[in-house]
């Protein structure tokens, strides 16, 4: 069974180890603005919510790409950006209804979570509280995201 990242906001302390690990894994920097996973703070409730791409079945980003620069990795299920082919048009960044594909000005390309190409993703390995884990791909949070996805237009799963 393919695995997916499970993110549990109740266990997140907002330490940002995941963001640093992600930025280091992909850009060899600890500049967290380059991270593909992001911890959102909810000041009113004092909560932290880690969030990144769920590798959704609908793959809006992949279908939005005009030059097939986003492809499915059959081994991990990740939708991966092929930087050599990406022209930087940014259509995928506005087509992903989860907001998890982002433009990187420094490279002129887009980036998104690729599950670190197999093995344990760096964010999960770096999380000290178990808020981010890499588990069999059938946890309820993911289902909830996919159910929500099913409510929107343009949903291949609905046909």
């Amino acid at each position: 069974m393919q695995k997916s990242l499970k993110m549990d906001p109740n266990k997140c302390t907002g330490c940002l180890q995941c963001e640093m690990a992600c930025a280091y894994e992909h850009h060899h920097t600890f500049t967290i603005s380059r991270s593909r996973i992001k911890v959102f703070g909810f000041e009113d409730e004092g909560r932290k919510v880690p969030y990144t791409c769920t590798q959704c079945d609908e793959a809006w980003c992949l279908h939005a790409c005009p030059v097939e620069a986003i492809v499915l990795d059959p081994a991990t299920g990740a939708k991966k950006v092929l930087e050599d082919l990406c022209v930087g048009c940014k259509v995928c960044t506005i087509a992903c209804p989860f907001g998890t594909v982002n433009y990187v000005a420094a490279t002129g390309k887009v980036q998104k979570c690729d599950l670190c190409d197999g093995g344990e993703p760096a964010c999960a390995g770096a999380c000290p509280t178990g808020a981010i884990t890499y588990v069999d791909a059938d946890w309820t949070g993911l289902d909830r995201m996919r159910r929500w996805a099913g409510r929107t237009d343009n949903n291949p799963a609905a046909v």
């Binding site: 960044t93 992903c96 209804p97 907001g99 982002n102 929107t152």
Partner: peptide
């Protein structure tokens, strides 16, 4: 701004 703009689609279309 370019970060997380897709969420606008998610909120509107959803």
């Amino acid at each position: 701004r370019t970060d997380h703009l897709g969420a606008l689609r998610g909120l509107i279309e959803g």
